[in-house]
């Protein structure tokens, strides 16, 4: 269970302070496909980043499997990100000159896996996402949809249990968007916790649970199951 407790995140100093998250509390079950929707600036991405341990909250806590994320030390938090979280961003953040397999291997390298294992696991993930023919292709040569699949492969390669996707379809056409959402759906069906931030209500409907946000607060949680 992912428990958010009185979570507040403020940006800026006193005079021009912006409250991105305002005392948010909720419980999100694991192993589900969760979408977070809302208008721009409502705090969706901030919530995702706080769950992922990328940003520290101003106050409150994020408790995952009974452990307060922000009570951890910097090194423990880095370890948590490597072992538990997989990120997928709208802008992919791939290294364009490196091949697909090199990009996908990075979390495994950080985890300190051996070269053979890295190669095997990365290859498996690439194949699972239908990119085997592109394994040694520099990512700069790939289409947007292919790049996002590489990013998903990278997020999954270290066997993360939580996949955080921040507008993963934002830069993709409708066909590629559907494909990416379908992949995320499949991952949730396989038991991963997938949390996706999106503007697209159609995509959000693919999720098991939809969290709607407004002005830094959660206004509704819809559980379709």
């Amino acid at each position: 269970m992912i428990v958010l407790k009185d979570l507040t995140k403020e940006f800026g100093k006193e005079s021009n302070k912006v409250v991105a998250l305002d005392n948010v509390s909720c419980e999100l079950p694991q192993g589900k496909f969760i979408s977070i929707v809302g208008k721009s600036g409502c705090g969706k991405s901030t919530l995702l980043n706080l769950i992922g341990g990328l940003e520290k909250p101003t106050s409150g806590s994020v408790i995952i499997d009974g452990v307060d994320l922000y009570a951890k030390k910097e090194s423990e938090l880095a370890y948590y990100r490597n072992k538990t979280i997989g990120y997928v961003f709208q802008d992919f953040y791939l290294e364009p000159e490196l091949s697909v397999i090199d990009n996908v291997s990075v979390p495994l390298i950080i985890a300190g896996k051996k070269a053979q294992e890295i190669s095997r696991l990365a290859q498996d993930r690439i194949s699972a996402l239908g990119l085997e023919s592109k394994t040694n292709e520099p990512t700069k040569n790939l289409s947007g949809g292919q790049k996002q699949r590489v990013a998903i492969a990278r997020a999954l390669v270290a066997d993360a249990s939580i996949i955080l996707a921040d507008e993963p379809t934002g830069n993709l056409d409708s066909d590629n968007s559907s494909e990416v959402v379908a992949i995320l759906r499949r991952l949730a069906d396989e038991g991963k916790t997938v949390i996706m931030v999106t503007h697209n209500l159609e995509e959000a409907r693919q999720a098991d649970i939809t969290v709607e946000m407004k002005d830094g607060k959660i206004v509704e949680i819809k559980d379709r199951q």
């Binding site: 910097e74 880095a78 990100r81 490597n82 990120y87 953040y93 290294e95 990075v106 950080i110 270290a158």
Partner: peptide, 16 residues
């Protein structure tokens, strides 16, 4: 140029 990629490394578990 690779600032964002480096931050991705951190997001993926690298330390400062």
């Amino acid at each position: 140029k690779r600032k964002k990629y480096m931050m991705m490394l951190r997001a993926m578990g690298a330390q400062k």
